[in-house]
Simulated assay, not measured.
Amino acid sequence: MTASPIASTVAVEKPYRSKRTANFEIAAAPDAVFAMMCPVREYEWAPGWTTNLILSASGLVEQDCIFTTPAGASIASNNDSAEAIWVTPFHDPETRRLTMIKVTPKECVTRLDIAVDETNGGATVTASYEHTALSPKGRVIVDGHTEQSYAATMAEWRNALSSQLDAAA
């Protein structure tokens, strides 16, 4: 078998990544919870959340919404990442599912999948973050994506969303 000519000019590496998934329950209507999974609505419940630009026909998250976040902006604690570009390739309010892809150039690509399901007491949120390193700094981000740090981030989400949705009720 002959080696591909691209193999000699492009680095091909095994991905360095980490994926974490968590579930938490909120005593609120699933549609109300899902509506909060938006870069605009996040200002209502995520202290310190900020964006630079949101490209959206509706003014809220939607299929193909694009937004940017400045350096250090994050829904996760203790983040010192660079400016990032987020794209929402999948958004389905009927099934309450969405996917966002965050690209932090020269650092990391992050995939965020969110599902909000109805339960007897309100809603269950399932959130998965998958970080893939693009550089040594990205490897530090991946390595910092531990079970403990992710559990803390999801506890922050649950507490902040519950407080906001309780206040709005």
Rank of each mutant, 00 (worst) to 15 (best):
D117R: 13
S149M: 01
A152G: 10
R158C: 06
F34V: 11
S74V: 01
M1D: 13
T126M: 06
T104V: 07
P70D: 06
T88P: 08
E94N: 14
T88G: 06
P39F: 04
Q164G: 00
W45M: 09
R17V: 03
L112P: 01
A169P: 07
W86A: 06
I101H: 07
Y43Q: 11
I66E: 12
E130C: 10
Y129R: 01
A71R: 03
E118K: 15
P5N: 11
A151G: 08
S77M: 07
F24N: 00
R158N: 07
G122V: 08
A167K: 15
A71T: 04
A22V: 03
A29F: 06
V33W: 03
T124F: 04
E25I: 06
S162Y: 03
S74N: 03
M37A: 12
Q164A: 14
Y150C: 01
P136F: 00
S81N: 09
A29D: 15
I75R: 01
Q63A: 12
H145R: 01
T51G: 02
P39I: 04
L161R: 10
A57L: 13
I66S: 12
T88R: 09
T132R: 05
C108G: 01
V87Y: 15
C65S: 13
Y16H: 07
S149K: 08
V33L: 06
S56M: 11
A46E: 05
S56K: 11
Q63K: 15
A35L: 12
P105W: 02
S81F: 04
A76K: 08
H131T: 05
W157I: 01
I26P: 09
S81A: 08
D113E: 14
T88I: 15
S81E: 00
G48N: 04
F24W: 02
S162F: 04
Q164C: 15
H145A: 07
L55K: 14
D80I: 06
P47D: 10
K19I: 01
V12L: 07
A82S: 08
L60V: 15
T124N: 15
K137T: 09
S149D: 00
V61F: 05
L53G: 04
F24R: 03
V142Y: 00
S4Y: 02
A84N: 00
Y43D: 04
P105E: 01
N23P: 02
D117L: 11
T153I: 10
E147M: 03
R20N: 10
A160P: 02
A57V: 14
T99E: 15
I141E: 00
T9W: 08
L161F: 11
E83W: 02
S4D: 13
M36Y: 05
V142L: 01
N78S: 03
I101F: 09
E13Q: 00
L55T: 11
P93R: 14
E83D: 08
N159Y: 04
P30A: 07
V12W: 02
N159K: 13
A84M: 05
L60I: 14
L53H: 14
E156T: 11
V142N: 02
D31A: 15
A152Q: 13
N159C: 05
I101R: 11
A123G: 10
I6T: 10
N78Y: 03
L112G: 06
T68A: 07
W86C: 05
